[in-house]
Amino acid sequence: MKQMNWKELPHAGTVLKAGNANEYKTGSWRTYKPKWVEENCIQCLFCWIYCPDSAVVVKDEKMTGFDYDHCKGCGVCAMECPGKKGNKAIVMEEEGK
């Protein structure tokens, strides 16, 4: 991001672009990466409601994957995933493998 000079800086340090933290990528924080196993997914959306980083992508009421630009790899989604017949729909894998 381009540095602002004193004339360009907004008054009182306000940030005028709502939600622009989205432009900042936190995906590089990850040690473990969630992997979605679609055949075990029952579309309960628990992963979506519990994700602290808004990194579960839901389209038309369906979980469609992860936003790896922002996912920090905490693993809450995998932990809470009920899966199907004891098989999790989200598994954590070591990053970079």
Partner: peptide
């Protein structure tokens, strides 16, 4: 209404 890219720790309960 809370975007990703915030700098709360990985796995923090507060953003949820």
């Amino acid at each position: 209404n809370l975007s990703g890219g915030h700098r709360m720790c990985s796995g923090c309960g507060a953003p949820t």
